[in-house]
């Protein structure tokens, strides 16, 4: 019984042989009891596959729908994945896909953003928050063109932005931005104001892609969110459509390269000084931000001295906090 004949038995059972090959196999089976035994055992094993557990992600349609509809980050874990298990899923699951998808989609569509969009100055160094000063070094953001604006009445929550020349150089053949127009920013007119200048606090974080969902869950643990200021996905769709049209010259699909691309996101939210202090502690505890022995005291001092001052003139009593998240490719890339 040769190896090739054995392979033919497998392919025979899978209906992957030509007529001539099937005839050959059937003749061989008629004359070789060992081949017949192999065939019988493989058939039996095939039947046994039907007894294996079937895994279902409950409410998966609901979460896919949320992923497509949600313009903002909602991170409510709701799926149970174990077969036969009714316990709620502990993972953030697909609800977070929505927000991240929205963030990344916006980031993607803004990569080739206009040349004359005003670059934002970074947060004044004199007012750099504790967290930012302690944050790990990231790519310089001074040249980035942040094109999102904050609503005057607060209601931040969500949204992501791009991008700097470096990333633009790295990506254009992979992910396109909206088509450039004569004035360069027609596609993003609703994001025109400098975001960072309006933020009371800016926190920079660098994470790998695989950490992003958990980071966003830390930043925004509840689903109580306000609509994003850009109107969500629909406004991006036209630009994205144009991107696709601009990319027809690309030689191949780009899935294998996705993990090699860095992406920068911005996420804005409002919180009280106490909430911000608590959040910074969580980020430090989770190692998203560097910590030190006296970090707690520093946070308390910052809350007492700076944040409280900053909210004096705010009716809402809340600080506008901007998270600049640099998402790096995972350390291990996909296998070939």
């Amino acid at each position: 019984m040769s190896e090739i004949n054995e392979e033919l038995i497998s392919a025979y059972l899978d209906h992957e042989l030509s007529t001539e090959e099937r005839d050959l196999v059937e003749v061989a089976l008629a004359h070789d009891p060992k081949l017949r035994q192999l065939k019988d055992e493989l058939e039996m094993m095939h039947e046994d596959f039907g007894l294996l557990p079937v895994y279902h992600a409950l409410d998966i349609q609901h979460f896919v729908r949320k992923a497509a509809n949600q313009p903002t980050v909602q991170l409510t874990p709701k799926i149970s994945a174990n077969p036969g298990s009714s316990a709620p899923n502990k993972k953030l699951w697909l609800s977070s896909v929505v927000g991240i998808a929205a963030c990344l989609l916006l980031a993607v569509t803004l990569i080739n953003q206009s040349d004359d969009t005003k670059p934002l100055a970074m947060t004044d160094s004199a007012s750099l928050p504790l967290a930012e000063m302690n944050a790990p070094p990231t790519k310089p953001l001074a040249s980035r063109q942040l094109t999102m604006e904050l609503e005057k009445d607060g209601a931040m929550g969500g949204l992501a932005i791009q991008e700097d020349a470096g990333i633009e150089d790295a990506i254009p053949s992979k992910v396109g931005g909206p088509p450039k127009t004569n004035n360069g920013n027609a596609e993003v007119k609703s994001f025109s104001a400098p975001l960072q200048n309006k933020a009371d606090e800016t926190i920079r974080i660098t994470v790998e892609q695989k950490q992003l969902v958990r980071l966003l869950a830390t930043i925004e643990p509840t689903s109580k969110k306000s609509p994003v200021v850009n109107g969500g996905l629909p406004e991006l769709a036209e630009a994205r459509k144009s991107n696709a049209a601009n990319e027809v010259h690309q030689p191949k699909e780009l899935v294998p390269d996705f993990d090699k691309v860095s992406t920068d996101l911005a996420y804005a939210k409002e919180c009280t000084p106490e909430e911000l202090a608590s959040l910074i502690r969580q980020l430090k505890n989770a190692k998203y931000l560097p910590s030190s022995e006296n970090a707690d005291a520093e946070i308390n001092n910052k809350t007492r001295d700076d944040y409280k001052d900053q909210i004096k003139n705010k009716q809402s009593g809340k600080l506008q906090v901007l998270f600049l998240i640099s998402v790096k490719p995972d350390l291990e890339s996909d296998p070939k």
């Binding site: 992600a57 992923a67 799926i79 697909l94 992910v175 695989k210 690309q250």
Partner: peptide, 22 residues
């Protein structure tokens, strides 16, 4: 199953984000 959740989540996200490259 938990790992499958994570991976499916990532896969749907990538599919969504990269759809214009399909």
């Amino acid at each position: 199953a938990e790992a499958a959740e994570d991976v499916l989540q990532d896969a749907l996200l990538q599919a969504f984000v990269k759809l214009n490259t399909y």
